[in-house]
C-alpha cells in the first residue's frame, strides 16, 4: 500500500470553539496580530470606541406572531434568494453564499452587525446610505440583478430579519465580527501562479477547476466563483481586500482560518483575475469604467492579467452545462479518484 497523506499540521485558531461570542471574539482578537487588524481596534485607539461582543439569538427564538412571520420570510429569502426574489436576482448565488450561516456567522459580514451600522456614508456612491439602500447594492452587484425599489416587500423582509437578529446590540457600536476581517497588505504582493496552486489544492474540489461550482437539483450547491453566474465586476467580492478577508475567515468551507494571509491574498487575486458579468455602471469602455470606479489598489478590473484585459464581462449565454462542470472537475479531483 502506498503511504497516505498525513493530515497537514494545522494552526487552528481558537476562534472557532463553540463558545459564546464573548469567548469567541476574545480568542479571535488575541490571536496573532497579523490575522485581523480589527484586533487593534479592540485595544481602543484614541478617539475610537472599543469593539463590542454580540451573539445573535438562536433561530428557534423567532416569535410566532405576525412580526416573526416577516422575519422568517427574510431568513428564507436570505438562504434561497432566487426562489423568493426571482425578479431581482441575475445569477445562481444566494445571500448566504457570502454571509454564512444565513447571515449569522461572525467575520462573514453578519446581518446583526450590519443592522446597527446604518445609515452610513459610503464612498461607493458618496452619500449616506440607509440599510435598505445597502441591501439594494448587494442585489445589483453581488447578485448581478436589479435593486428592489425602496420599501419593496423583499427589502422589508430582509430588514425585519436583520433587525430581529440584532436585538440587544447597541446602535452605532462597532461589533466584533462585523464585516470581513481586514488583512494586512501581503509582504509578497499577490501572484496569479501562487493563487492558482492554492486554488487547485484547496478550492477546486468544490468550486471546480473552471470555477463554476456544482449544480445539484437545479441549485448551485457549490457556488460559482467567476463566469456568467457569479457576482459582477461591481461587487465587493471583486475587490481583493474584501475577497481575501472573506476567504481567510471562511474558506475552505468548514475549515476557515487555515490558509495563511498570503495564500488568501493570492487565491483572491486568482479568482478575481477571471471574467464575470459586466459592472452595471459600465461607461461604454473598460478604461472609462476603470477610471470611474476601479482605480483603487485592490481592483483587478481593467488590469491585464495573463495577457487578458479584465472587464470584458461574461454574458449569460456562456453558461456551463453540468457535463462541462463535471469534466472540469474531473481534472481537478483526479487525486481523489484512485
Amino acid at each position: 500500500m502506498s503511504a497516505i497523506m498525513r493530515p497537514r499540521a494545522r494552526m487552528r485558531s481558537l476562534a472557532m470553539l463553540p463558545l459564546a461570542a464573548l469567548a469567541l471574539s476574545a480568542c479571535e482578537h488575541s490571536a496573532p496580530p497579523q490575522k485581523n487588524s480589527a484586533a487593534s481596534a479592540v485595544a481602543a485607539k484614541p478617539g475610537k470606541p472599543a469593539a463590542v461582543a454580540f451573539t445573535p439569538p438562536p433561530l428557534h427564538a423567532i416569535p410566532d406572531d405576525a412580526f416573526g412571520a416577516e422575519v422568517r420570510k427574510g431568513e428564507a429569502l436570505f438562504r434561497n434568494t432566487a426562489a423568493h426574489a426571482p425578479q431581482y436576482v441575475g445569477n445562481t448565488l444566494t445571500c448566504q453564499n457570502c454571509h454564512l450561516d444565513a447571515g449569522r456567522l461572525a467575520d462573514s459580514a453578519p446581518m446583526w452587525a450590519a443592522w446597527v451600522s446604518y445609515p452610513a456614508y459610503r464612498s461607493k456612491n458618496q452619500r449616506v446610505n440607509t440599510f435598505q439602500e445597502r441591501l439594494q447594492g448587494c442585489f445589483k452587484f453581488s447578485m448581478n440583478g436589479k435593486a428592489p425599489p425602496l420599501g419593496a416587500p423583499e427589502l422589508v423582509a430582509l430588514e425585519a430579519y436583520s433587525y430581529w437578529m440584532a436585538q440587544g446590540a447597541p446602535t452605532g457600536a462597532r461589533l466584533i465580527g462585523a464585516g470581513y476581517p481586514k488583512l494586512a497588505r501581503p509582504a509578497q504582493g499577490w501572484d496569479y501562479a501562487r493563487g492558482e496552486s492554492v486554488y487547485r489544492e484547496h478550492c477546486a474540489l468544490c468550486h471546480a477547476a473552471d470555477g463554476q461550482g456544482l449544480m445539484v437539483d437545479g441549485k448551485a450547491w457549490f457556488p460559482p466563483l467567476w463566469g456568467p453566474q457569479s457576482y459582477n465586476w461591481g461587487a465587493g467580492m471583486s475587490r481583493l481586500d474584501l475577497a481575501a478577508g472573506f476567504i481567510k475567515a471562511n474558506m475552505p468551507l468548514g475549515n476557515g482560518n487555515n490558509l495563511s494571509d498570503q495564500q488568501a491574498w493570492d487565491v483572491a487575486y486568482y479568482i478575481d483575475s477571471h471574467e464575470r458579468p459586466q459592472d452595471p455602471r459600465y461607461m461604454g469602455s473598460i478604461e472609462a469604467t476603470r477610471v470611474a470606479f476601479h482605480d483603487g489598489p485592490y481592483e483587478t478590473y481593467g488590469r491585464t492579467v495573463q495577457g487578458h484585459r479584465l472587464g470584458a464581462g461574461a454574458g449569460v449565454t456562456g453558461g456551463s452545462t453540468v457535463e462541462h462542470m463535471m469534466q472540469a472537475r474531473g481534472a481537478a479531483a483526479a487525486p481523489l479518484r484512485d
Partner: peptide, 27 residues
C-alpha cells in the same frame, strides 16, 4: 442548516445525506 462555523452537513454529503455523486463521490 448548520450552525455557526459548522456548515450544513448536506452541503458536502448531498441532498438527504445521499452523497453528491459524479466525480465528487469519492471525496
Amino acid at each position: 442548516q448548520g450552525r455557526n462555523a459548522v456548515p450544513a452537513c448536506v452541503t458536502c454529503h448531498g441532498p438527504g445525506g445521499r452523497g453528491l455523486g459524479g466525480a465528487l463521490s469519492a471525496a
